[in-house]
Design a protein around this nucleic acid. Sequence first.
DNA 1: GACATTCCGAACCGATCGGTCCAGAGTATC
DNA 2: GATACTCTGGACCGATCGGTTCGGAATGTC
Lengths: 204, 204
Amino acid sequence: MSTREGLLFVARSKEFDDLTAVTAARDVFWERGYASTSLSQLQSATGLSKSSLYETYGSKRGLFARAASNYLDTVVGPRLAPVEAAGAGPAELAGYFTGLAEFFDRAPSQIARRGCLLLNTAMDLNDLDEEAATLVRNYRARVQAAFLGVCRGRVPDAEAEILTAAQIGLMVTSRLDPALACSLARSLAARVSAWPADEAPPAS
Amino acid sequence: MSTREGLLFVARSKEFDDLTAVTAARDVFWERGYASTSLSQLQSATGLSKSSLYETYGSKRGLFARAASNYLDTVVGPRLAPVEAAGAGPAELAGYFTGLAEFFDRAPSQIARRGCLLLNTAMDLNDLDEEAATLVRNYRARVQAAFLGVCRGRVPDAEAEILTAAQIGLMVTSRLDPALACSLARSLAARVSAWPADEAPPAS
DNA sequence: GACATTCCGAACCGATCGGTCCAGAGTATC
DNA sequence: GATACTCTGGACCGATCGGTTCGGAATGTC
């Protein structure tokens, strides 16, 4: 708003929801990757005109930044939260993999095949910038840190490194064959569940 | 060649080496992915003109098929051969990962960051065809089969499934950070080496 | 009505895309 | 020289790319 001659004028309010638009764009990037996503596809998904997209997000790259941030907040965060919580144990980690298994099992093929937006970005790093590269590296580090928190005191630290790699492989596999990914996720959950108890074992 | 009036004429011989050109193209696809590789980049890499490329390989897609086949023959095959051999054991599997670790350690960054041509293709499946998709799935299945041959009789079969995922994650990680991939590969080798002996344990 | 802002359609930019074609130079054997 | 084939540079195709600009309609408050 602006003032002039003591009068207060209020501008026309926004007609589209920013979160809705970013989410729609996120899904296109997620499914097709950054480089293979065209502006016209983003227009179709968001329902916004090219002018509005440019005016609001500055560029394709700017919209991608918003999409990636949204992905971290609404997809990665909630799924990883129980594992990142203080005191998380094998049960929480197994639940993480079981949750993914159920997702691959139940979600429609088109959704299950999207893999991970940030890992998919690893293939587009040639077309993006160093900022995008560190974004992906930080994501990987965050996953490994969460896994490591559960491993400490129970299994060697290298287990977290390997589990992180397996998780990355899991998301890539889901792009190839969601059913295979489902099976794999269950195997990972089973493996974590088989870890020895860390404290006083239950008297049986 | 053709005959006419009883005379035999022999055509001009090829001036470029097919294997060299395919290898050069393969490296570009490997580094940049299918969709992000342009014809002009393929021209620069192969040293061939657009006309010759079209005449020889039919299309960008046709050249990619040759590149992928070459990749399987000259990259995947040799590295996986010892693991696929009859009677291969943990030592061969550990050697596989150690070989990758040394590669990530010694190869120039630009080379080490290429990851796996076929796994990278998983991101381009939207732009390719079902034939390409089965190519990647078959590669994954081949790796898992090789790993499974070593697991049998020593560790549960699910270990091969998880190791395959870890191997996929390893190749993705190498695109992000070769040093991390090197460390990961060594951890995988160590893990496999720690498997219990399958037959009469050595008397100590 | 005046004013401020939002939004879109459309035109436009320069560039690149994969693909097609052809004239002509080069290279080989007879 | 005649013949047959290889190979290239360049022109061309229609299409699409990300990005930019602008006029004007729509929507709001005063």
